[in-house]
Amino acid sequence: MDSKAIEDLVAAAKEGSHQAFEALVRHTYADIYTLAYRLVGDEEDARDVVQEAYLRAHRGIKKFRGDAQFSTWMHRITANCANTYLGRRNRHRHDPLADDVDIPDLTPHLDPVHQADIDVLRTQLVSALMQLPPKLRSVVVLRDIYDLSHEAIADQLDITESAAKVRLHRARKRLRERLYPLGEERADAV
C-alpha cells in the first residue's frame, strides 16, 4: 500500500470511517506487533500492547495531524503503551532469570547458504537485544531500529532527553560488548 493510499485511509478514518481504520489496522498490525514484541520481549504481552495501542489510536485518530507518517505515529503510541505495560508488569510480576531467550522465527528469503550465516548473526543480535534490561532495550529499539528522535523517545517513555541518551549509550555498549566479546567482527552480514 503506497503512502497516498494510507493518507486517504487516515483522512477517512479521521472522518469517522471504521472501514478505513480497519484497513489501517490490517495493513500495520504485523509491524506494530513486531515493535511491541521487541519492546516487551514476550508474545502475550506484545499482543496486549498492540490491542491497547490500536484502541488509543482509534480514540485519538482525529487528533492525528499528519505531520509524521501514520506508522511513525503508531510507533510512538506503541512505545508509550509498552512503557506503561512494562511499568505495570514490573510492579506485579517477577520474571525468572533465564539464559535461554525465545528467539522469534525471522523468515529467511534469500540464498540459503549465505542466508544461514546471516541468520545466525542476526539471531545473535536479536538474542543480545532480548537480554538487555527493558529500559535499555526500549531506547535502542526505538532509536536504532525505528529511528525515533531522542525527543520523541523521551516523550513516550516519560524520561528526559539526556536520560534517553544515557540509556542509549549503555544499551549500545552492552550490545557491542556482547557481539564483539573478543574483538571479533560478527555483525558484518546482519
Binding site: 514484541y37 542476526r122 525505528y146
Partner: peptide
C-alpha cells in the same frame, strides 16, 4: 547498521 537492518524484519503474529 545491523540494528537498522532489523527494521525490515517483521515477526509474523
Amino acid at each position: 547498521r545491523a540494528l537498522s537492518n532489523l527494521r525490515g524484519q517483521v515477526i509474523t503474529p
